[in-house]
Amino acid sequence: MIRRHGEPVKPGQNYTRRPGVYAILLRGDHILATHQAEPIPEFQLPGGGIDRGEQPIPALHREVHEETGWKIAVTRRLGAFRRFTYMPEYDLWAEKVCTVYLARPVRRLGPPSEPGHTAIWLPVEEALHRLGNPGDRAMLARALG
């Protein structure tokens, strides 16, 4: 059973399952997060949806690069959680199945290519409060022990 974080399931609402991969990128006492400006400005773990036919680890590398501009080295799978949410950019009610990996930022290759995203180094103590969803915050707390 994968733990649910965030808003409760809306009775009668149909949700589309959307698997995704996300990274906790630690360097010292900071993490590399992404700040997404739209639709609601928030800090997030970098990552996103796995495209049809794509494997999780290549999807993680692609998504982190798009959202932060960084090349990463994946260390290990940390865990997974579910979120039931409306995704306005896709006009979709989604059951997001979020698998989170510990990874290491290797090299900045350039700016994020994903529109509206900015790579931000956050102190981990600040990130525990500022990440935009409770699943991201819980996974960071788990990573920190």
Score class of each variant (00 low, 15 high):
66 E>V: 01
78 L>G: 02
45 L>D: 00
105 P>I: 07
90 Y>H: 12
145 G>N: 11
131 L>E: 10
32 L>S: 03
135 G>V: 02
36 Q>W: 09
81 F>G: 04
72 I>C: 12
23 A>Y: 12
2 I>Y: 08
124 V>L: 01
130 R>Q: 15
80 A>T: 15
78 L>A: 02
23 A>F: 10
103 A>Q: 10
125 E>Y: 10
23 A>C: 14
142 R>G: 00
83 R>Y: 07
83 R>A: 14
3 R>D: 03
41 P>D: 00
59 A>H: 07
91 D>K: 14
58 P>M: 09
4 R>K: 09
86 Y>P: 15
67 E>I: 04
108 R>C: 11
76 R>T: 05
11 P>D: 13
19 P>S: 07
124 V>P: 01
129 H>Y: 14
26 L>F: 13
53 G>S: 04
11 P>T: 13
40 I>A: 09
123 P>G: 06
102 L>P: 00
51 D>T: 00
109 L>P: 07
88 P>Q: 08
7 E>N: 12
21 V>M: 11
103 A>W: 05
141 A>D: 10
104 R>Q: 04
55 Q>F: 01
93 W>I: 05
117 H>Q: 08
38 E>S: 10
82 R>L: 00
37 A>Y: 08
136 D>R: 05
43 F>N: 01
127 A>I: 04
49 G>E: 10
40 I>Q: 15
130 R>Y: 10
36 Q>Y: 06
132 G>V: 02
108 R>G: 04
29 D>R: 12
114 E>L: 11
117 H>A: 09
115 P>T: 03
127 A>N: 04
40 I>P: 02
55 Q>R: 07
31 I>G: 02
26 L>R: 10
7 E>I: 10
11 P>G: 03
11 P>R: 15
1 M>L: 09
123 P>Y: 11
48 G>R: 14
1 M>Q: 07
26 L>T: 10
117 H>I: 08
50 I>R: 12
83 R>T: 09
126 E>G: 01
83 R>N: 10
2 I>E: 03
